[in-house]
Nucleic acid binder design. Structure first.
Lengths: 161, 161
DNA sequence: AAAACCGCTTGCAAAATGCAAGTTAAAAAT
DNA sequence: ATTTTTAACTTGCATTTTGCAAGCGGTTTT
């Protein structure tokens, strides 16, 4: 995929230009589980060292993770999620939920989430911050800020071809 | 990435084994915007034809989209999201939101969402279905169904190394 | 001082990608 | 009725990306 492509000036595309790789998401998943060290990422994911260092570089260069030398051992480097990185949690959660629902092996979800705040098992749902109702694809309309037609970006809104 | 890898029996990893590619997500984005035809996906994304047909094949083989011949023109094939595919909406939405927030070009979000149900601009948030509060990474605890330690999967839960 | 360990880098073979050209079947135009 | 156009691919090939193995340079332990 060419980096210079505009992709209809869309935030999904922008995210994918940074995170469009399986390994990146898997590293993030590990990070959300609390993993912080190179060798642990490597061991848990079975990822090749060159790929791992490349991906960690991408994540740090994009401000999603940050490097920190371990105060107890100067050889070790901590990789930690930044605020920007922590903000990716809903993406990982929604992925997990879809996998739980549609890629089940018949034994139920591999991982259970517990919501410490309320003490119950977490079932996350996407809600409208205004009305509080769950969000569904068919309830949403789109408007592009530059007036582009969503279905045919070559045609400006309101103008007929 | 090797397909046979288990990846700690995680739903995120399972999803990524199917959807671990930029193009797949971009095709899905188009589909959620209402795009249904091969030539429109091609034109809107600027994707090579062999890649597009390959990705559409992956999506249909995995039950995320389905092919349907157009009743008005037997040459044309409609690609539509299945229920399983529509269920990926929260993933796309959370991606969009993160991009809006962290990859802003200073002009605000490229795309505005309007919630038809309540008539207001949509700002989706992840909530706990039980207590209704927004979900944050630090409020969640994990338990693996097979007792695996999240940080070190080689160690069973409760056992010290 | 020697050995072990951590986080890489390098070399190279294999796979994935992107472009252009060709193919098949249906529909529209002549 | 025949030719032309259109839609959705497929194929060939050069370029790029990936993945494995081996090596390397600091830091800590022995």
């Amino acid at each position: 995929m060419k980096k210079e492509t505009d992709f209809r000036n869309c935030s999904v595309a922008r995210l994918l230009m940074v995170l469009g790789d399986r390994w990146l998401f898997l590293i993030l998943r590990e990070a959300f589980f609390g993993v912080r060290y190179y060798d642990r990422f490597k061991a848990n994911l079975g990822i090749a060292t060159n790929i791992l260092s490349d991906r960690l570089k991408i994540l740090t260069e994009n401000g999603i993770m940050e490097k920190r030398t371990d105060p107890d051992d100067a050889r070790r480097i901590q990789y930690r999620l930044t605020v920007k990185g922590l903000d990716l949690y809903p993406v990982i959660l929604t992925m997990m939920q879809w996998g739980d629902k549609w890629l089940d092996d018949g034994q139920g979800p591999p991982l259970m989430l517990h919501h410490k705040t309320c003490g119950h098992r977490l079932k996350p749902i996407m809600c409208c911050s205004h009305c509080g109702k769950p969000v569904q694809a068919q309830d949403i309309e789109y408007t592009h800020r530059d007036g582009t037609d969503m279905l045919n970006p070559a045609v400006a809104a309101g103008k007929k071809k």
